[in-house]
Design a protein around this nucleic acid. Sequence first.
DNA 1: CTCAGTTGTGTGACATTGTCACCGACAAAT
DNA 2: ATTTGTCGGTGACAATGTCACACAACTGAG
Lengths: 226, 226
Amino acid sequence: MLRPENLKRATTALPFLAHAPAELLRDFLREASIHAVPAGAQIFAEGDECNTIAVLLSGVVRVFKIGETGREITLYRFEQGESCILTANCILGNRQFPAIAMVERDAEAIVIPATAFRDWVNRYQPWRDYVFDLLSRRLASVMAVVDEVAFRRMDARIADFLARRLSPSASSLRITHQEIAAELGTSREVVSRILEDFRASRLIETGRGTIMLLDHAGLLRRARAM
Amino acid sequence: MLRPENLKRATTALPFLAHAPAELLRDFLREASIHAVPAGAQIFAEGDECNTIAVLLSGVVRVFKIGETGREITLYRFEQGESCILTANCILGNRQFPAIAMVERDAEAIVIPATAFRDWVNRYQPWRDYVFDLLSRRLASVMAVVDEVAFRRMDARIADFLARRLSPSASSLRITHQEIAAELGTSREVVSRILEDFRASRLIETGRGTIMLLDHAGLLRRARAM
DNA sequence: CTCAGTTGTGTGACATTGTCACCGACAAAT
DNA sequence: ATTTGTCGGTGACAATGTCACACAACTGAG
């Protein structure tokens, strides 16, 4: 049950609610509820059955896989207005959750029971569009991950990653080598070696837990070379 | 425009048509058409816009990515009753096709215009369920590919691949090393080396363009070891 | 402040995988 | 039989993953 004042926040996250049929809004108010989830909490683990679906109002959730050796790789993240569409995936297909979802920054989520979710997909076009769009976006982005992992060299991927998170205006980044490794699906040692190389090439400067940008254009060049 | 005798074949491929509302059937007959596509034909290339969607009546289509070095990796295949859901993906999200789809075995396809497809998703629940289910299945299977590529060793992946296609009753397989490489996203040399190793371990016997099974249990052991 | 424990990074050795250059064996066509 | 293209084998080297370990920077308890 959602309090009316929270409908405003929900509408910020899900803009289509502003023009949605009154019926959907009524159902939404009745079925949805808001929960706060602290950073570090696992929302779903590999193999879980899903009986609710969450749409984020704030915070960030990271969805990733873990290999047998303990290595991780990020599949994607979602934040405000997005939902763990993999959950939708399990709900609609009665499948098990094929990855791990963990809150990265404290999150508030609108939680909707699986039964209501399924029902709305059938009854309300705006809701249906929302779900299709997310599902479709994820499929494309996960396919892009396959491409990255299968074909690109690690130095290019790391350069790419850094170039996206650093800019002349935000020239320093707090992140550990281990975190970069988990992002890209490699090991910490490999990241350390490549960062050492970037440092020798005067692309970045490194400190414990931080990376500082020296040469953004140079990073982009490394990202493109292969 | 579909001839009534072809509706039977379509219903074999899409069982939900048997219980679908008359309206959907009428639309289906009006909008769908059947086309034969020979093996080797590219259905979609990376970056294509999609304005039709195809559902297979027969044959096999392989969807894959190509890296800059020319290496390939198979994302998935689809055959009778399945559709190139990535097309749905582009249609619903107005995105570009993010991979290559090529007919592997001569195919016949029911072709539906994008506009009709979109319309039916909104109007007919059986159609909607069909599309959701496929999309959702693909997402899960592409995520499994990420897991494979990121974490499993190549010898285990090749052993796995062979164990699936060989059995004591079908103990020989016509396939080239290059084809295995394109399947798994590695290079021909790597496949050759690993097959040589399997041969030395008396798991298989190899000939030009063929692989013969010697020890199925042994292959499965190699597939599990990491 | 000091010390011990924790976390982040560096390093060398080695195994696995990817790339390149090249060769020879085989098959189909002429 | 010769030619041509496909298929597979090989050696060298580069890139990546794994393991074992060292050590420096931070943290919190006392």
